[in-house]
């Protein structure tokens, strides 16, 4: 797992715990069952990850989670760009870590 991937997965895990305890286990089971992957899919294909979350928790819960993930990392990344989506966040991480 790359450094950028590791940071993102950790942020997702924290965001899930913050939103509601137990969500992480449910989401991991869903990703495993549908894609045979874990949370790292968010880094590889953020759109696909969002679709999976949306299917599981609903469109707006997926948006809420996306916002919480962005909040978790936005300050730490130190960039000036405004980040509005998971795709933009992944781009920013990749830029910073040169991946």
């Amino acid at each position: 797992m790359s450094k950028g991937q590791e940071i993102l997965v950790k942020a997702i895990s924290l965001a899930l715990k913050e939103v509601a305890p137990g969500l992480e286990a449910v989401l991991e089971a869903h990703l495993k069952a549908t894609m045979n992957k874990g949370l790292e899919v968010a880094y590889e294909n953020p759109k696909e990850f969002k679709e999976a979350v949306s299917k599981l928790f609903g469109e707006y819960s997926a948006r809420l989670l996306e916002m919480v993930i962005i909040n978790k990392l936005e300050g730490r990344l130190g960039g000036n760009a405004e980040i509005n989506s998971l795709e933009e966040l992944v781009e920013e991480i990749k830029n910073i870590y040169g991946e």
Partner: peptide, 22 residues
């Protein structure tokens, strides 16, 4: 249709903020 999950205490303010924004 805004389908939301029941969140914990830590995230409820964020959820309300998100809802009001929508």
């Amino acid at each position: 249709f805004i389908d939301l999950v029941t969140v914990g205490k830590e995230a409820i303010d964020k959820e309300i903020g998100f809802l009001m924004e929508e």
